[in-house]
Amino acid sequence: MKLQWRLAALKNGFREATAYRIEFLFEIVGSAFVPAATQFVLWYALFQTGGASQIAGLSYSEMLHYTFVSLLFSQVRGGDHDFELQEMIRSGQLSNSLLRPVGVVEFIYLRGVAPRLFIAAFCLALGMIFSIYLGFSPMRLLGAMFLALIGNIIHYQIGAALSTTAFLWEEAYSILMVKNMIVNLLSGELIPLNLFPSSLQWIWKSTPFYLYVYGPTQYALGRWTHSEYLLQLGIAMIWIMAASLAIHLTWRLGMKRYLSLGG
């Protein structure tokens, strides 16, 4: 495995993401603000105005902790480099990358993930500081961030496989948008997944999306045991392998249909 070009791609991606500093900062803060505000308003309405003492076994302060900690991981989950891939296929811009002696899917991922790694480090540092006040383990936070990063890989892999529908239909934007909407709900970004009725819990359990935000949050807050965490890491690895296979197959089929339009 050649490290040189991979490191260079990370550096290059980071340089590009931070070319416009204000835009970069707004992206981080802005994307965190809406889900945080929604959740704070919702929990306030249910607990303070509505008078509930517990929802799905969680108290008001536990819900607030969930909201705060989940924000750290939902910032790591993001990234729209699967959209970049579909646009490259659609516009024919993929041709440039295809002729370079590196794997296109991995190359686009590395350039896209670079700013997320920076955000992950920032969120980790922020979480470490707050862990002192909120009383959760820094080591657990570290493990949780690792799981969130694994989630980031799975998220991109699924997007990369779905983006190949652009080879077939020339446009995969809607598919990726729908995927992101499903992820918003089933990753635990908007609400803790244990709020799902018990008869519907199987829905989020049968996707890998809960590993992006809900899983790391549960572990960081001490609601998952270490053995549960290790089991979930194992499940994440299986998802990575399955998604790699899906990428391999869909790209192989897709390349036979690629027209390299626009030139």
Partner: peptide
């Protein structure tokens, strides 16, 4: 190498030198 006059290969928001650095690593 393929140069298409109508398709940019370099990254718009970066200086050319950054792009060349990456290509240096890619082509070893």
């Amino acid at each position: 190498a393929l140069v298409m006059g109508q398709k940019a290969q370099l990254w718009w928001d970066l200086p050319a030198l950054d792009a060349f650095d990456l290509l240096k690593a890619i082509y070893e």
